[in-house]
Amino acid sequence: MTPLVEVSGLSVEFGGIAAVHELTFAVSRCEIVALMGPNGAGKTTTFHLIAGARQPGSGRIMFDGRDLAGLRPDARCRLGVARTFQITQPFQELSVTENVMVGAMMHHKRLPDARAAARRYVELVGLADKADAPAKGLSTGQRKRLELARAIATRPKLLLMDEVTGGIDQKSIPGMIELVRRLREQGLTVIMIEHNMRVIGEVADRAIFMNRGVKIAEGTPADIARHPDVIDLYLGDAAHG
């Protein structure tokens, strides 16, 4: 079966410095793949390139059999590429449901239809009790769920999740892991940027470790955790203790 995502020789430079260099990987349908690495590894830039926020200097991104070259983010979203961001930016004065309606209107042009769809996604991510509350009153974890609901309201095939557990309290992490699993069961393919090795180990099928724009290692989370370069660059003494 053809992979949903095929990244081939992807490279981009900023001021003569390679942010991503000759990056190649593929993601199968309904697979969860984690991108990991230290700050400046090129993970977020890779997301920008897939989502269309930046164009590569060289290389190719194929999505569902189509070359994404030159397509803007909105066109890629219509094809089925959605993303969340590390720093959430909801419309503060709008309600949770109204925020999600922004995504739902990609496919529902009538406001009652968009509202009904948004309610379903709000419930899916566990925010039903906050559906009519203004987004400005949400906790960090709730904002993460809101942004996730807004993204999946566009009905994507591929979801790019940027630090899904970043900034949320430890007791909320298992619920977020379960939510990601549930999304995969519903047919979503996920590429996630994540630093928490426990989260990666519990939810990801594979992990790709990057450093300075270059793919250093790829394999199961257990393989990555044992990789000597990953230990030296990322896990450090914690991996030996």
Score class of each variant (00 low, 15 high):
G15Q: 11
A18P: 08
A18N: 14
A19R: 02
H21L: 11
H21N: 12
H21Y: 13
E22L: 11
L23E: 01
L23K: 02
L23I: 08
F25E: 03
A26F: 05
V27G: 02
V27R: 02
V27H: 01
V27M: 03
S28W: 02
S28T: 09
R29T: 12
C30N: 14
E31K: 03
I32Y: 03
I32A: 08
A34G: 10
L35P: 00
L35Q: 06
M36K: 02
P38C: 07
N39S: 08
N39G: 13
N39T: 12
G40I: 04
A41F: 01
A41W: 00
G42N: 04
G42I: 02
K43L: 10
T44M: 11
T44I: 11
T45K: 01
T45H: 05
T46I: 04
F47W: 04
A51C: 12
A51F: 10
A51W: 03
R54H: 15
P56W: 04
G57C: 12
G59S: 14
G59Y: 04
R60W: 05
R60K: 15
R60Q: 14
I61L: 14
I61S: 06
M62E: 12
F63R: 06
D64G: 11
D64F: 07
G65M: 08
R66M: 13
D67E: 15
L68S: 09
L71P: 06
P73T: 12
D74G: 11
R76T: 05
C77P: 04
R78L: 08
R78Q: 10
L79T: 05
L79E: 06
V81A: 01
V81N: 01
A82N: 06
A82E: 03
T84D: 06
F85D: 00
Q86I: 02
Q86L: 04
T88L: 01
T88G: 01
T88R: 03
Q89E: 13
P90A: 01
P90N: 03
S95V: 08
S95T: 15
V96L: 08
V96N: 00
T97M: 09
T97F: 00
N99P: 07
V100L: 08
M101S: 06
V102H: 05
G103C: 06
G103T: 05
A104K: 00
A104H: 01
A104M: 04
M105D: 02
M105C: 10
M106E: 07
M106F: 14
H107P: 04
H107T: 11
H107G: 09
H107L: 11
H107A: 09
K109R: 15
K109M: 13
R110A: 14
R110T: 10
R110V: 12
P112D: 09
P112N: 07
D113V: 06
D113H: 10
D113K: 08
A114N: 02
R115T: 09
A116R: 14
A116I: 10
A117N: 02
A118M: 04
R120I: 12
R120T: 14
Y121F: 13
Y121K: 04
V122K: 02
V125A: 08
L127C: 06
A128M: 12
D129C: 09
K130Q: 15
K130V: 09
K130C: 14
A131Y: 05
